[in-house]
Design a protein around this nucleic acid. Structure first.
Length: 374
DNA sequence: AAATCGGGGCG
DNA sequence: CGCCCAGATTT
């Protein structure tokens, strides 16, 4: 079979399959480019099932692009809480504001303009242009690279940026005239539902007849991808500082810096220690916490008893955290330090927390309320 | 090209 | 436990 015939077969059969099997997803019920944009940002490195409830809450609170642009940043971050990769939320709002200022509030339709928006890279540019505006641009994500690697039996390492470029050329050549929106979604849908990473369901695949990877019996070993490095452990002591006097029943928390890991999220005060040996010595942790918080203008007395332990797994590192208890020594501190705040259970939901601190604080408040009730 | 950026689900 | 997910940005 000629290559062009094979490509036509692939596109036609995939489209036919998609129109019958496509999932009913919230963002597929909307033609609003803004809604499609929001969904694509949320779906970066994040599963469909995880995104669905977040998408509903987000478009319910920020139904239009201008409402997102006008919202307080804290509230946008709060609606992203637990979804991860929080720079996505800040970039999305920043880009929404740019669209209001530069494009009159309408999502632009050119490749140059769309790809210039913050948080919108090669994949998302193609996704917005094709899904929202039916333009014949490729949208190559992990699903698409897996499907194409198998169908054409390609050994290119999909971890390499150059591979994504060549995949985009192939993907674009496969788009049927006037069908960019459905075709690009079909390609991803096949990767998500049939041509899955571990155990592809070839009998259910609409294009298995001419799949070269399957012909060669290599569908399970493709795509080729270099392995990621293992996450390194980082040892930390966190502290729950119980307030006194006017701050009785409250706990000291702080906001993370504007950039970097978990930017602008809230957390328990904590310090990093150099090695696991120090981490096994709570007395050393108590001293380090007292010193570190003194630097910040907060006087505390920490006990050397571990009252909680938690682990937070990131892609490139693992936080191992032991939690100590402490009492505030004075009352008039941290007043002029906006990064630190006293909060009680009633304030908890006003702040955006990484999962690990949400869990630790929830446990503490539940325990404290129990204790008080007796 | 490599590192940085979350969190969860699954074999 | 390792791998991957509708990736983008920074270095």
């Amino acid at each position: 079979m000629k290559q062009q015939d094979n490509q036509r077969f692939f596109s036609a059969e995939l489209l036919r399959w998609y129109r019958k099997e496509r999932r009913d997803l919230p963002w597929r019920r909307s033609r609003d480019p803004y809604h499609i944009w929001v969904s694509e940002i949320m779906l970066q490195q994040t599963r469909v099932d995880t995104v669905i409830p977040y998408f509903h809450r987000f478009v319910d609170r920020f139904p239009t692009l201008s409402q997102l642009a006008e919202a307080p940043e804290d509230e946008v971050l709060k609606h992203w809480e637990g979804l991860g990769y929080y720079s996505r939320a800040r970039n999305l709002q920043s880009a929404a504001r740019e669209v209001v200022e530069r494009y009159g509030g309408e999502v632009p339709r050119t490749k140059q303009e769309v790809s210039g928006l913050k948080g919108v890279g090669p994949y998302t540019t193609g996704a917005i242009l094709s899904i929202a505006f039916d333009q014949p641009e490729p949208a190559v994500d992990g699903n698409v690279m897996r499907v194409l690697s198998r169908y054409f039996c390609l050994d290119d390492d999909i971890a390499r940026p150059s591979t994504r470029i060549s995949m985009e050329d192939r993907a674009q050549a496969l788009i049927p005239e006037g069908e960019a929106s459905d075709f690009n979604q079909a390609l991803m849908e096949l990767g998500a539902m049939v041509c899955t990473p571990k155990s592809p369901d070839c009998p259910a695949c609409p294009v298995s007849l001419h799949c070269e990877g399957r012909h060669q019996g290599r569908e399970r070993e493709l795509p080729v991808k270099t392995k990621a490095k293992k996450a390194k452990p980082v040892f930390r002591f966190a502290v729950i500082v119980e307030g006194k006097g006017a701050h009785a029943g409250k706990v000291l928390v702080r906001q993370r810096p504007d950039t970097g890991l978990l930017a602008k999220m809230w957390e328990l005060p904590h310090v990093e220690v150099s090695d696991e040996g120090t981490w096994d010595n709570p007395a050393a942790g108590a001293l380090m916490l007292e010193e570190a918080l003194t630097e910040e203008g907060v006087r505390i007395r920490a006990a050397d008893e571990v009252i909680g332990e938690a682990q937070h797994i990131f892609t490139h590192l693992v936080w191992k955290i032991k939690v100590l208890a402490a009492e505030a020594q004075e009352e008039a501190y941290v007043a002029d330090r906006t990064a630190y705040r006293w909060i009680g259970p009633e304030d908890f939901e006003d702040y955006a927390w990484p999962n690990v601190f949400r869990k630790l604080l929830t446990e503490y408040f539940i325990h404290a309320i129990h204790h008080e009730a007796r």
